[in-house]
Design a protein around this nucleic acid. Sequence first.
DNA 1: GCCAACGTTGGC
DNA 2: GCCAACGTTGGC
Length: 139
Amino acid sequence: MAYWLFKSEPDVWGWDAQVAKGDAGEQWDGVRNYQARNNMRAMKLGEKGFFYHSRTGLEIVGIVEICAEAHQDSTTDDPRWDCVDVKAMRPFKRPVTLVEIKAEPRLAEMALVKSSRLSVQPVSDAEWELICEMGQTDS
DNA sequence: GCCAACGTTGGC
DNA sequence: GCCAACGTTGGC
């Protein structure tokens, strides 16, 4: 069971918009980066990911679940671009900010810190557990 | 709003 | 196949 992290600018697609979609979920479209796409192709039904607000907010606000594995991104005809569907599972009691993550030595290897431009990234089991604790949320 | 870092494109 | 030019992302 792998864990993931999805970034979005809340002005464009934020946690509230994700929650509003309910259990039907929504495709994580618009990714035009091979590494991010490859991460989505590796995702399995039922796996979980963090939902991170980039640009404004700069914090992890909740947990989403993969509710459809990789398929064509319907916002383009270009067959290179796939995406998964995700649905909101639960919010963090306390959002975990980028500042806190950077201040935590055990999270220094996170892609969020090391390759800040990658919009869909893997999260290790240990990182997952720790961040859930920091967010006072069940992992 | 700025700009550094990074990824992609395309001419050679 | 190199690399300069360009576009985009995202922290600050």
